[in-house]
Design a protein around this nucleic acid. Structure first.
Lengths: 199, 199
DNA sequence: CCGGATCCTTATAGATACTG
DNA sequence: CAGTATCTATAAGGATCCGG
């Protein structure tokens, strides 16, 4: 139990989620619970012992809890959302490196939230986003992104099927291969979604 | 050069400021530039080699720059402010530990920003806050905290002289020893400042 | 097969001493 | 004053192994 030993809320926060990999483990739980093996697949470079250590640390800190063989953010862990938002905004403006490397499906889908530009108030729809491994639900309410989580919706206005690299390019504004994106359902609703990701 | 190797803005941010002590070094520069020895005094547990490493890392990352023997945040480093705000808000709500340990003067003064409650629009004033080691300037404009930085103001409406532990108690809402706070200048202006710190 | 624990190697942090 | 050098302790990285 390594601590900064400072009576400062920032230092205390870092005592809890400042260890290596801790915040990335938490990130993988932002869209819903995950099992140990799923976390390992999403974070291939973490190694089993460090992952087990971090999950223990995060549980002891009250950030993560275990429910029937799955790990989930607690309510307080979910309150990390503004921290993720601020870090993503800052890291995304980095002048040093344009970002390259691996990405988990969750990380790409979370990019939707980061790059989402609100639309018209008459836009309300539910989308299914199907990637190679998982399906996700995005719900737009009055032009705003009201819900984004792992798992397929019961019914969707439109279903977008693609792979995470194409989606990353779409969201990041880079060049995407249109043939790798399949849209089913309400084409107009889908178009509004794509428009909301453009700069 | 250890990296998460992920194309995720959060992971990239953590590549830059996620190493141990990095964000606390940056915190000590939020209120103004510091010299190496001052950083060491503010962060007594960091050790000289780790401090030197972090300062090098942060410079290479473009977060910190060196100007005539002082370290300062770059413009982009100053953009970390929302990250600090989010972390402080989250860490301050921790149900686990109520915060205990050392505090640098800067960390206590930064608490003023965290706990500041805006006041009436007719409230505009400049304050000098004198602690054991350093003096700080707080400028209120139309009830809002417009400026907070290290260094004494040219002229102050009121001057508050105390020590960092008393100020920490005052800001945190804990019991403070009134005899350890000295106020000079406009007493009414000083009262408004103290009121803005109360819950 | 899933969910880790163990073991070993390497890298980083912590502490203290020392130097241009 | 501003670090570097050196040494030790701890944590991360990586492969393999084990119990339910």
């Amino acid at each position: 139990v390594r601590t900064y030993g400072q009576a400062c809320p920032v230092a205390h926060a870092l005592d809890l989620i400042g260890e290596r990999w801790a915040l990335l483990v938490a990130r993988e739980l932002r869209l819903g619970p995950r099992r140990y093996a799923e976390l390992q697949a999403a974070l291939p470079r973490i190694g089993p012992s460090v992952l087990a250590d971090r999950l223990r640390d995060l549980q002891r800190a009250g950030v993560v809890e275990r429910r029937d063989r799955q790990y989930a953010l607690t309510a307080w862990g979910a309150d990390l959302e503004p921290v993720f938002t601020a870090l993503a905004a800052w890291g995304g403006r980095s002048p040093v490196v344009p970002l390259a490397g691996e990405v988990s499906e969750d990380a790409v889908v979370l990019g939707l939230r980061t790059s989402f530009r609100p639309g018209e108030p008459d836009w309300s729809a539910t989308y299914a986003i199907r990637l190679e491994r998982d399906a996700y639900t995005a719900r737009i309410d009055a032009g705003r992104l009201a819900d984004l989580r792992r798992g397929a919706p019961a019914t969707a206005d439109a279903t977008v099927t693609t792979d995470r690299h194409t989606l990353l390019a779409l969201v990041g504004g880079g060049p995407a291969e249109p043939s790798r994106v399949k849209v089913r359902g309400d084409a107009r609703a889908a178009r509004r979604l794509f428009d909301a990701w453009r700069d």
